[in-house]
Design a binder for these strands. Structure first.
Lengths: 251, 251
DNA sequence: TTTATCCGTTAACGCCGTTTACCGAAGCAT
DNA sequence: ATGCTTCGGTAAACGGCGTTAACGGATAAA
């Protein structure tokens, strides 16, 4: 049973986050200020300390919220494609990641840009998704491999130092799922770095000076990643078979 | 002939930059403040407006300075290797880029992180190096290709949309150097994105949660980029024939 | 009904960027 | 040497910021 106080408090927290998000979108990350948020809510700034210990804490909460939303967005895009089209699902999820970043540059910056001095992600929660959407991508890659059995680097072809690192990572994240070779985790790391580089460069405006539209390069790189796995290139974007928009219940 | 006034002014500008750099390294990008800089110099904040129109302008000048230094660092690392060892030179330059980023995280963040709302690089100077160190990397890749003639994507294998973008980029940067195929520019873009992704993820701390040391992955990706071009893997780091103490990596 | 907890207030401290007005000293032309 | 201009600094002030402290009213709990 939720008491009245708890409900009120929860609503206030939501309102704070909404106001904070408005300022973020309107004026960038540096535009988030306790005083401005409080002003928006018809309150005074010190009142916000009843809800967050500091501005940094409030921002950390925002980041966690966005991480959840980006995961939901990616999962929703993945589920646009039929369950059998594993590479189509992976491609659409990747595209959704890019689009979210470009549509939410300030938010993306907070999550994937340089952290403020003195911040570290919650981590260490040995749960099933310690890296959030990262796990979503890995699951898709693992499913794809289990069906297609595309070649992955043999353990001996991975430098020992990297092998140790990957092994440690796999164990820490519970990715030592039955029969997953280390080479697949190696490919996952490479793919994630590539996706991050593409999207971050574009979102941060560091690709503008060479290409005025990042979409062609993104699609070409996406296709390249698939063909380098021995898979056929994914269909062009936006090929959901049944055009019904809302068909995902759980996310 | 430089007048006395000019010399004094130049010295003051240098002192401002030095103070600003100290604060950047000590307290991160947000630690740069006109008042703190002025305090360091035994001045008052408004005096700085005689040298920079605003704090953003001062920061922009810092960025330009760092861009030059990172270019010099990369070139110096490249020149550690003998002129004939083209892939060794490319590898050492790439490693130097990573090391500079890890040794100068706040500075790297200013250059390659999300720009403050309202900033765009000088650009449009049709000179020989519109992208600074970017041109350094491209030149190395082009030299390597002209000798080794490793395979590059044929024009027909590049999606038309990307082809147009790359062509526009090549022309704008004067990269339509005799006989350079478009496929090489395609590879350059891919390689740069990959290098950026690797280094930025690590510098921003987004790789810490999966690997506690980024060096093995970096070396593995570097080797992979060379072998995927049909070249032998580069020698391990720190193989400059004449012993010059420059790099260490492993944590 | 009393008591404690929550949730807001006002006031203040010390930061910050920036603008304005002012002023002495350095440079320059006559 | 004189006068004038430009340069490079000052102090004062405005509005913004995060944060802390003291306080008070409403609400829940005993």
């Amino acid at each position: 049973m939720t008491t009245r106080r708890e409900r009120m408090r929860e609503a206030t927290v939501r309102e704070i986050q909404e106001a904070a998000r408005r300022h973020l979108r309107a004026h960038g990350p540096s535009g988030i200020s306790l005083r401005a948020i409080a002003r928006d809510m018809g309150m005074t700034a010190p009142a916000l300390y009843r809800y967050y210990a500091s501005l940094d804490d409030l921002i950390a909460a925002m980041i966690e919220g966005y991480k959840g939303e980006i995961r939901e967005t990616v999962e929703a895009a993945r589920d646009t494609m039929p369950a059998e089209d594993l590479s189509g699902r992976l491609a659409e999820a990747s595209r959704a990641f890019r689009h979210w970043a470009l549509d939410h540059r300030p938010e993306f910056t907070m999550i994937f840009g340089a952290p403020l001095p003195g911040y570290e992600p919650p981590a260490k929660d040995g749960g099933p998704s310690p890296m959030g959407f990262g796990a979503v991508f890995f699951t898709m890659l693992a499913d794809l491999w289990e069906r297609e059995r595309f070649p992955v680097p043999a353990d001996e072809d991975i430098p020992p130092a990297l092998r140790d690192q990957l092994l440690h990572f796999a164990k820490a994240c519970g990715l030592d799922r039955a029969g997953i070779p280390l080479g697949l985790i190696r490919l996952y790391a490479a793919a994630w770095v590539r996706l991050y580089g593409l999207v971050a460069m574009e979102a941060f405006g560091h690709v503008k000076f060479m290409l005025d539209d990042g979409a062609p390069l993104f699609e070409a790189e996406l296709a390249d990643m698939f063909t380098s796995l021995g898979l056929e290139s994914p269909a062009p974007p936006g090929h959901s078979p049944s055009a019904s928009a809302a068909q995902n219940a759980d996310s």
